[in-house]
Amino acid sequence: MTRILLRNKLDDCIAAWQKAGFSVLAPVKRHEMSSFGEVQKSGDMALDLILTERTIKDQFFPQTEPLIKYKIGKQQIDSETMTPPEKKRVFFGVRPCDASGLAIDDPLFGWDYKDDYWFRRRDNSVIVTIACAQADDFCMCTSVKLSPDSAKGADVLLRPLLEGSGWQIEVFTERGKALLEIVSSLLLEGNGHTFPLPQVPEKFDLEKVMAWLGDKENFESQFWKDIALRCVGCGSCTFLCPTCHCFDIQDEGDTYQGIRRKNWDSCSFALFTMHTSGHNPRNTQSTRWRQRIMHKFNYYRGKFGVNSCSGCGRCTRQCPVDMGITETLQAITNLPR
């Protein structure tokens, strides 16, 4: 027997979680933009969105994060480490691709050094994924071997009930179990009819793509120059990607004091690889675009055994010149062999 969360009990759940010390975050639409934000009641949530414009990544790896405060005196340097907030958080209504994005980035942030800023937030967060009931032309989770009801990265997975009255619950982790324990009196026992999953057609042949990228002969292929011709080199596709994780460390302040910050950076920018001498090893947009594809579907897999893409489709959805990962991987799939 599975359990059911009714929509009309959601407000009580929020209140109960808050009482237990959690902040509740969910998709919200504010100032003409959708993202994850704190909510007080179910009415604040925008659960019908296919996907928020901003990703959930922002809540774990903010666009700018203070690391150290420092003061340089005559004889000494004082510094103070700034720690990320440790508040417990529930993320309600995460899409499978966004939750997968977190799981994809975990090994990166825990690789040779455990990034406290990421893991403190991860350890204090519970991810409640809601399986998708609709998809758009850009969704491509199935192409990267995920699905509209993937539980990757989720502590709890909810499946929408057919009549829209609530969700059927599946629990995957201890953290998820503990979260539901708090609201157990509000849940129903039972089996409902769940909404059919949307059909998300596979857009490219991932195996073929990875084989082509893995062939060193193709690194200097004319293909890269042709496909990247119209890319204008903005940071839109990387900053809106749930798995892109590059950052830059900057000291902000004057000669005597300041704050050291961790700021988002993007491989699309010419400055990303610019040496102090002025030499730039990736001096054209095509080499930068190649880096983005190679990193996601070759290097990252080589290091962590997983591709750095969860198929959310944002890179195409938001690109000002209608590029994106999908087109390139489709083109590689269709290359004559």
């Binding site: 700018t64 809106l240 830059d248 900057q250 902000e252 910050r261 920018f269 000002p320």
Partner: peptide
């Protein structure tokens, strides 16, 4: 993300002031 700059025909500076980083004139944060 500088998409506004990158699509703008009038933003043709080879090195935008925000990309001038020796020293960093405009903070990247």
């Amino acid at each position: 993300c500088y998409a506004c700059r990158q699509v703008c025909p009038m933003c043709y500076c080879r090195r935008c002031i925000v990309d001038v980083n020796q020293p960093q004139w405009v903070s990247t944060s």
